[in-house]
Amino acid sequence: MSEYLVLQVIVTSFVIFAVSRSYLRFRDRNATLLEFSLWVLVWGIVLVVVWMPGLTDIPARIFGIGRGIDAAVYAAIVVLFYSIYRIYSKIERIEQEITTLTRHITLEKRK
C-alpha cells in the first residue's frame, strides 16, 4: 500500500503543477475562464480517481468491465484518440487557411 502512496503523491504534485500552469495561462489571458475550468475539471477527476480508486468500479460495473482500473484506462484511450482527431482536424484547417493566404498573396502580387 505504501508504494501506492508514493504514486499518489507524485500524481498529486504533477496535478498541482499542471493546474498552476493552466492558472498562469488564464491569468495572462492566454486562456478563457471556460478553458481553465475545463482543465481544472479534468485534473480534478484525475485526483479523485488516484485518491479513491474504488470509485472507478462504479462505471466498470455499469459497462461490464472487470476492474475499475481497466475502465479508467479505456476511458483514457478514448479521450486520447479523440484529442488526436481534434488536433488533426485543426491542423488540416490551418493548412487550408495557409494555402488560401498563399494563393491570395501570390495572385495579388502579380496584378
Partner: peptide
Amino acid sequence: AIVYRHPVNRGLGGALGTGISAALM
C-alpha cells in the same frame, strides 16, 4: 511562361488551385 510564385511550399493541390484561379483571371 507567366510565372506565379508561392512564397512557401504548399504542395500540388495548393499549386493547382492557384494555377486554375490565375488562368481564370
